[in-house]
Design a protein around this nucleic acid. Structure first.
Lengths: 222, 222
DNA sequence: AAAAAACTGTAACAAATGTTACATTTGAGT
DNA sequence: ACTCAAATGTAACATTTGTTACAGTTTTTT
């Protein structure tokens, strides 16, 4: 792992240690490279080590039992994969993980992680913060899914994405991806979007969205 | 906190310390008692200390932006309230918390939690495991919500609850609570349930459920 | 035991979403 | 500039779910 990557890693960054090389050399771990489009972790697999993605990107997908795919997110290196589950009583991965390109993954035994936490307060703080952020991400996802109407989901999502609701902003997903994110059918999403445009609530130009009527879009929550 | 409670606490149990009283006496914290049916924590409140529920029970509710209540769970003492969010970058509570009876809550500063983790490996392990279990709970909840049909949710839930799918089992919730758990309307749930009974997939007697047709109930996932 | 409250079953109807299918537009690659 | 694939718009129709309302049942309270 390069120094730059090391610093930008959510759990290894800012560690305040003198010699990062030595720190890493001491670490007992194995490195493995996987090709593109490979399913590397299955929902339900036992999780007994920390999988650190050090190169490339992967996609995590939660497959519901009715076969629908509920896209969760794309993870880019450097980041640990599902670090919380390493410590759960029922230590199984909750998602499928598929490579999007060639990736490198370092597998660190649980005992090593424990050791690092005990000896390095910054590492422990990072690990805790990272897990907390993950939990918050999940909670957010839960909140989005729990909104029942499609227009409500759109409203929630757009307001979340817009830094400033008076200015246009860019959404980096196409309709199919949005539909997957919301867990709805693509044509249904398109219909809701075009209705919201016709009602003068938002305007859309390609992936450039704009909130036109702040009051109306907030009414969709009521 | 009594010894028995101390031992059964998910993050303070099995701590391998000689003197629990001394351990607790050293702890800088404040104790507060709240009456029944009080909203003690609001969604969005800043979370800068660990709230440990030591007596009584509370209800956590996530209120969606359209005003619907999506019941999350009932928490009984002793258990920490949302311990993960203490360490998140954006440290706000994700849920409303309401007392169900008179409760006692101990508020422990973040710095104290950090100290305890650094000095006590068992405490750290407990804390991590507890957070991991919470994450798994959320993931499960996410999975349940992401199933689109009501019958699919029922099927998923019943199979999860039934230890042995050939034997009858008890569900400790009424229809309204189940509907809230699934995020659907109560009469809709009742309709789906009675259809499943008519189709010979399950039988219901009060809160005693039984899976009659294992194949058919699994087809609801397809 | 009677009364009240909570829970359950169900029906008619409204509303939202899914499904399928196809036309149109956009974008990428040559 | 042309071609092809992907993305989008949209319409008709089917299906599911929500809403409202009320009656029957069970449980709790008095």
């Amino acid at each position: 792992m390069k120094h730059k990557d090391f610093d930008s890693c959510p759990i290894c960054g800012n560690l305040n240690i003198e010699d990062e090389e030595a720190f890493l050399d001491d670490l007992k771990c194995t490195t493995k490279v996987y090709p593109k489009n490979e399913l590397i972790i299955r929902q339900g697999d036992v999780c007994d080590a920390l999988y650190m993605l050090t190169l490339g990107s992967v996609k995590t997908e939660m497959i519901t039992e009715n076969g629908n795919i509920l896209g969760i997110e794309i993870i880019k290196a450097p980041r640990p994969l599902a670090p919380a589950f390493l410590f759960s009583d029922n230590n199984h991965f909750p998602v499928d993980i598929t490579t999007l390109e060639e990736v490198e993954i370092i597998k660190i035994p649980k005992s090593e992680i424990m050791r690092m936490m005990m000896t390095n307060p910054d590492f422990m703080q990072n690990y805790l913060t990272h897990n907390a952020n993950r939990t918050q991400f999940l909670t957010n996802r839960l909140q989005l899914l729990s909104i029942k109407t499609i227009k409500g989901k759109i409203a929630h999502y757009l307001i979340e994405q817009a830094q400033d609701t008076t200015k246009p902003f860019h959404i980096n997903r196409n309709q199919s991806e949005l539909a997957e994110l919301f867990g709805v059918a693509r044509p249904s999403l398109a219909r809701s979007l075009s209705e919201m445009v016709q009602e003068g609530i938002i305007s859309i130009n390609k992936k450039e969205y704009r909130i036109l009527d702040t009051n109306k879009i907030k009414e969709l929550f009521v």
